[in-house]
Computed example of a mutant assay.
Amino acid sequence: MASGSSTGGAGNGNFVIKPWELHGEGREFEKISADFGKAVGTLEQALTALGSPWGLDKPGSGFAAVYQEAHGGLLGGLRGLAGQLGQVGSGLHTMAERTADADTSAAAGFGGRPAGPGGPVRPGATPVAGTAVPKDMSA
């Protein structure tokens, strides 16, 4: 998570989640996922371009049998990892939205406005219609 997402020293019990930072981190994971997926595609093309250089003799055939199984497992695992990185990004977006919704609901219940980049909840404030926690301040 981005620097500054949690605050407080030892034993003070404070924890702060900033939805806009979670969205930013979610976008980072989605970018890493896309870049990793492209790298896996490039690797797959490069390995395919090599063809079958091991030959058809007994040692070459033995190597080919082991290589083909490992090759499929490796590429499948790498593609799966790229997908899981993207899912982490989606999960961070979901967490940010749920955090913002919970903060908005809690602030409205206490007659204030949610904390956000604009400042803290003002004691005794009257909720303003349509006031919501910013979804993303980093873009």
Rank of each mutant, 00 (worst) to 15 (best):
V16L: 14
S90W: 00
T48C: 14
A70F: 05
G51I: 14
A96L: 02
A70C: 07
F29N: 04
L75A: 13
S90G: 12
D101P: 04
K58V: 10
L78E: 07
F15Y: 13
H93S: 14
D57A: 06
E30V: 07
R113G: 13
K58L: 13
S90C: 02
T126R: 08
E97S: 07
A102C: 08
E21Y: 00
D57C: 05
R122T: 15
A125K: 03
A49G: 03
S33Q: 06
V121W: 12
L92K: 08
G9D: 09
E44P: 02
S6Y: 06
L92A: 15
G118Y: 05
A125C: 04
E25W: 10
V66T: 15
S61P: 01
V16E: 14
L78H: 05
R98A: 13
D136M: 09
T48K: 15
H93E: 13
F29G: 10
S90L: 01
Q87F: 03
V88P: 02
A115P: 11
A129V: 02
G118L: 03
S61A: 14
T104E: 07
T99A: 14
A65Y: 09
A132M: 05
G72T: 09
G80Y: 00
D103S: 10
D136C: 09
V16G: 04
G37S: 05
A132K: 10
K135L: 09
G118I: 05
L56V: 15
T94S: 05
S52W: 13
A139E: 01
G109T: 08
E44R: 03
F63T: 10
G116A: 14
A10K: 13
T42R: 09
K135E: 03
S33G: 05
G80L: 06
T48A: 15
G119M: 11
G124L: 10
G4H: 00
V128T: 15
G60A: 09
V121R: 10
